[in-house]
Design a protein around this nucleic acid. Sequence first.
DNA 1: ATGATGTTGAACATGGTGTTCGCTACTGAA
DNA 2: TTCAGTAGCGAACACCATGTTCAACATCAT
Lengths: 192, 192
Amino acid sequence: MNEQREDRRLRRTRNLLTGALIDLMVEKRYDSITVQQIIDRAGVGRSTFYAHYRDKDDLLLSGFEAAVDGFDAHGDDDGTVDSQIIPALEFFKHVQENRHLFNALTRGRVIDLVFEKGQDYWSKRFENYLKGLLPQGREPEVPLPVLANYAAGTFITLLKWWLNNDMLYSPQRMDEMFRQLVTPSIKAALGN
Amino acid sequence: MNEQREDRRLRRTRNLLTGALIDLMVEKRYDSITVQQIIDRAGVGRSTFYAHYRDKDDLLLSGFEAAVDGFDAHGDDDGTVDSQIIPALEFFKHVQENRHLFNALTRGRVIDLVFEKGQDYWSKRFENYLKGLLPQGREPEVPLPVLANYAAGTFITLLKWWLNNDMLYSPQRMDEMFRQLVTPSIKAALGN
DNA sequence: ATGATGTTGAACATGGTGTTCGCTACTGAA
DNA sequence: TTCAGTAGCGAACACCATGTTCAACATCAT
């Protein structure tokens, strides 16, 4: 009940701060942004900031988590090599919807940190998937961990390129490219 | 003549500082390293540090340039799709020889900055190369800029994986994998 | 109205940065 | 060997960002 309400002021303050940080990240490198600048831009008191967040990084990650919330892999199994494991289309769409945040992350040079986790996660899932796909007793031409890391890395690379080029193509096209690039290599490496 | 001499003390001090920074980067994140820690470890006076370098970043980049000096693409043309453009084997070898520095860069989370430049450079060269390779009037399935960025990105991804896994395989094997992964996709995208 | 909770901003302690300067120690050349 | 020139030293300093504390004020539900 009381937690339910959550006092609109709380949410308002957090939104102001997150918005100010994103604003600033569009303008300058993340490391060069000071807490003072954030609270000035947000019109929020200094102590209020520290009542909500431990430091600048905390604010950043909270904002990011909020934006990623509500995103969960759907796993539409259409039979191709990788669709369930790396839900590329879903993710491209999601990034497009939150382009403001992701652009800021890119400019602020924090995107690497964020995507690193994603790459690890997808790489592991993909490796398990490939393990099941490989015929018994057969050795792939490229070791599975490398192969999995390659696939996840390609996805991240495409995502970065897309963000750095004003999302020139549609999410559908990007997803298509991802598969066009990764599928031949995977098939060749697995030996069929 | 006078520049030739260069007082051994100068070089010694610089080596001490670079070494201390690398030492520290092996232990902790780059941003958490202070100038004080560097000069303590190096046994060098504070003012001496600032006489040589403008700041921490300056020291880092100088050290990196020094290590990359003496490396230049050989371009051994053996007829496969990419050997001249991205001299992967040469680079894997070079990284292995300077593994100390590259490991430190990786742990210090600065590697992204350094490789970003490399990826841009290779991507552009590769795009030009592919442009010449494509039959007149034919459209590739994946746009050339994306394709080039993909190839350069794959190389960087492999390099990072290699560094993060104790250089498990030989430079020759890594080079081989790079080609096994990239070649099928390139061929498929170019339509042959 | 009242208590609970959120906000404010000044003041403060702390710690890193980069500069200055008088002194010492070493170097290479004659 | 001598000596002028150069490099290194480190204490002291001004500056600035961080994160904490606190007393006063604002807002809301009941």
